[in-house]
Simulated assay, not measured.
Amino acid sequence: MRQSHGQDISPADARERMRDEILDDLDEEIELELDDSRLAGADSDESAAFRKHYFRELLRLQGELVQLQDWVKETGHRMVIIFEGRDAAGKGGVIKRITRRLNPRICRVAALPAPNDRERTQWYFQRYVAHLPAAGEIVLFDRSWYNRAGVERVMNFCTDSDYAEFFRSVSEFERMLVRSGIQLVKYWFSITDEEQEMRFRARIEDPLKQWKLSPMDLESRRRWEAYTLAKDEMLERSNIEEAPWWVVPAVNKKRARLNCMAHLLSLVPYAEVTKPEVILPERVYHPDYTRQPTPEGMIVPQLY
């Protein structure tokens, strides 16, 4: 290997730099975990041995997801994965781990805000259709059209007629997606009453996570039972053979992530894609090239 100006790098130095790069990548995973556990306390059954196993399995599953991504791109497969659940159930955490090493041009997240005045006058599913995948794409919906069966129903943001029409339409809408060639996977992340309260209190205490608590989240806490009734009806009335619901026990966040990722991989008949060998070309050197120094006033202060 060579540095600029043609200086040789020894094989030992090259290996050390490669090791540093890999460790830096792993540090980002650890950083996510540390951020998740701030003030929340460790899971009751978590041990050093389990944490080691968790990271090993997380990296292995992420490697499998990269193979899945390559297969999706190669075959033109289309996937929609829906993540639903109560506030603080862990949907965002698993979405981060799934997408962590994937190409955002192939695998993207759709997290739609509340509909605007124009969207409220459209066909209910219309704004979601715009985010559906083309060939060779995966779309993860962080909440989805099932907002109507959940938050809109519980908070009275839709009429009884709107709610009834949703259930008349949703199963046929999803069958249309599947008939068109889209693989539709639906996950519900399930936590207990006590676990949600603990996670909410942890967010209140953590200044880095208070932004996650909206007035709507707090109101959802008060209406726990109404959400339970709405969830039960949703799972019963929209659990179709073409796109069944899958429930992820999510009291333990780490186990929920691994279980969801492993289950998702089991649903797709992907295979390793043969790729052409990647050869790094030699850098071209010109004797008259001189790298100009960067003006001091443009350099970010080196505080660390």
Rank of each mutant, 00 (worst) to 15 (best):
R38E: 15
I81A: 04
Q62H: 01
V247S: 04
R223W: 07
S37D: 06
H53L: 09
Q62K: 13
A89F: 06
K209P: 04
R120E: 13
V248G: 00
C107R: 01
D162V: 00
I81K: 02
I182P: 00
I106V: 15
H5S: 14
V278T: 09
E46C: 10
E137G: 08
R97E: 02
K253D: 02
E137I: 02
V154Y: 04
V247I: 14
W123R: 01
A110H: 07
Q196H: 07
G297C: 11
T192I: 10
Y128D: 00
L184W: 06
L208G: 05
T192P: 01
L132H: 03
R291W: 13
D117C: 04
V178R: 05
G297A: 09
P113E: 07
R127W: 04
K254F: 07
E152A: 08
V278E: 12
S44C: 13
P293D: 06
R179K: 15
H77A: 07
T294E: 15
L213F: 11
N156F: 11
M155W: 10
I22Y: 12
W224C: 07
K212I: 04
N156I: 05
R97Y: 02
G92R: 04
D232Q: 12
F157G: 00
R223N: 14
E84T: 10
F55E: 06
Y128V: 00
R199I: 06
A88R: 00
R56G: 10
M234D: 03
E195H: 03
F166C: 06
R105H: 11
Y163L: 10
A243E: 04
E241T: 13
C260N: 08
H131P: 01
Q69Y: 02
F55K: 01
I98M: 07
F166H: 05
R78Q: 10
K186D: 03
Y187K: 00
E236H: 13
S190G: 03
R101M: 14
I299R: 09
G297H: 14
W123S: 02
E28S: 15
A14N: 02
R203K: 13
P244C: 11
L218V: 11
A226S: 14
I81D: 02
I240F: 09
N252E: 13
W211G: 09
K275W: 04
R108Q: 11
Y128A: 03
R120H: 09
E29S: 11
P301H: 10
H53N: 10
V139S: 01
V170S: 00
E74Q: 12
P293H: 10
L229C: 06
M261P: 02
N103E: 11
V80Q: 03
M155A: 09
E194K: 14
W224N: 04
V139D: 05
Q126D: 05
D217R: 03
V178L: 09
T290D: 12
S4E: 15
I138M: 06
A149Q: 01
R203V: 00
R118N: 12
V247N: 08
R153D: 02
D193W: 13
P113K: 01
